[in-house]
Design a binder for these strands. Sequence first.
DNA 1: AGTGTTTTTGCAAACGTATGCAAGGGGTGC
DNA 2: GCACCCCTTGCATACGTTTGCAAAAACACT
Lengths: 334, 334
Amino acid sequence: MEKVTSLQVAERAGVSQSAVSRVFTPGASASAKTVEAVKKAAAELGYRPNRVARAMITGKSRIIGLVVAYLDNQFYPLALQLLSNALQEQGYHILVFTAANSRGEVDEVMQELLDYQVDGIITASVGMTNDLTRRCADAGIPVVMFNRGQAGAEVTSVTSANVKGGAAVAEFLHSCGHQRFAHISGWVGSSTGQDRQAGFCDTLRAKRIDVPVIDGMFDRDTAIAATRTLMESATPPDAIFVGNDHMAFAVLDTLRSDIGADVPGDVAVVGYDDVPLAAWPAYELTTMRQPVNRMVEATVEALLTRINTPGTAPKRIEIDSPLIQRGTTKGPRT
Amino acid sequence: MEKVTSLQVAERAGVSQSAVSRVFTPGASASAKTVEAVKKAAAELGYRPNRVARAMITGKSRIIGLVVAYLDNQFYPLALQLLSNALQEQGYHILVFTAANSRGEVDEVMQELLDYQVDGIITASVGMTNDLTRRCADAGIPVVMFNRGQAGAEVTSVTSANVKGGAAVAEFLHSCGHQRFAHISGWVGSSTGQDRQAGFCDTLRAKRIDVPVIDGMFDRDTAIAATRTLMESATPPDAIFVGNDHMAFAVLDTLRSDIGADVPGDVAVVGYDDVPLAAWPAYELTTMRQPVNRMVEATVEALLTRINTPGTAPKRIEIDSPLIQRGTTKGPRT
DNA sequence: AGTGTTTTTGCAAACGTATGCAAGGGGTGC
DNA sequence: GCACCCCTTGCATACGTTTGCAAAAACACT
């Protein structure tokens, strides 16, 4: 009982193969009698339509390619799980591709994605070149960038309001009476890192405050080194804004265990993302919340509408992100 | 320039369509001259073989289905990333399915997997019924269970040596001079949870020590409640073995922040997995290390050999897991 | 140059499904 | 009872590839 095809079902049900196909194609016409006979035969034989064959003829694989660079930042596994759930409900599934953020790898991986005839692509924690964007558009495959944008390009992207968020952190820390700010930025090669930095630094610059910035590369070890550098300087900061929570944890660990600084007494720390770990008693991290639920919803909605109605214009979606005050800052809890 | 097929390449290269196919099929015969002509034409047209069509005829999709229940335990995202990388190198990719651990859902999801004609299946953090196992065997699709076994069934599984691990924890804590043990177990419905519990409790029972056990369900909140229950009892434990790190963090948070107990002074805590977070200064968790690299290697190797040489017997693979002593126990550091 | 052997090549038949087209069937309204 | 229309149904084709088979070409050897 290796493979059972629609033809075998047809024979057993005493109808044509097309009839079987139509019974399993939503929206096709079939009489109640045929439907019943076919369903019965199918159940008896254990028949289910072959999705590969179906994909081949319809050109729709109902597979969404997800390309992701790393999963150590808790934010992405969470997003992956929610994306998978949401898409699964719509009959889609996620084909995972991992690619380091070097230009060549993403390129290579994208090609493979196209080979699989995916219906759409979601990129997370990964950047795209404009050339790549165009190639996907040419192939008619909608792309949406998750948690990353692209300067002046025609791609749909879903991010939080990073510039605004960075600015909010600046305003908040300033209102707490801090004087010496520092920023350990997200990877400078990512829009997310750039935007948060811009929002933060520009806001402070408007107040005539200059902010030292170190690129933390979204990496734990780099963030640890950056923290040491900052704290060993002549004028150590009394408030650090860190490009994401993953690095902020490293900063906190270093401040507390290594340097022996009091947080928030000596120095306040603010992160970005609000991953679950940020709320755990061990960290109690003040951070900008990225509402992953809403970001995921927006992502699948944008993707599916672009799949179902080709020609939809790319859209840049920004979700507001609120400040969540916890124990690593001393501001007035609102 | 929507779709470019092998036929178009053939025309341009002045050969037959089969020739084109052979050029792109490793191990097929083609003369140097044809290879060159075809490659040139293909490059000019931007042709790449359609994997769906190929899958349809060969019956091999080069897709591996991964079904996973949850990704909040850091262990699984890490495994997912490594699995994806390893399989990608072999030309396979991962199709992700999420399924809660209720019987119905896993069943449903498995059916969908078969529809996709996947070449193999990896289950992680999820159990399988023997019925399901048989169905996959019937369909000729190899399954390997990652970090979970199945009582007396014919499935390949890759786990750490959980019974031995649980026993090792018991011996260690006993050698530290603890008297009152407790265990917050992994989900009792999982082999992993059961085995660790058995190893731990049986070892202590052999020493005439009885151990209270609470099912933590691999869930943070459940573990928190369990910790409170244990510590509020008449004779609170002075050593707790927790079924995995994810729960152990919850236990530590509760002990330190909520109950105000000193760890390891008042009570020692041991986890299982050694996820990266366990080594961070905020926790410094003593734990049994599951060598995720080796588990992943074993998994892909087992899976690929079963794919390439059908009829290979299922194998139960156990990887030794060493005890990593950190700050949540007071034993002599070795 | 002729024979035997290996390699290359094209032809055509699959793989399992969806779907346009035309024919069949059943019902409605007069 | 007839004309009309709509819903079903089967036939046949297409999707883009791989692959067995047999013919052709290339090559080796005497």
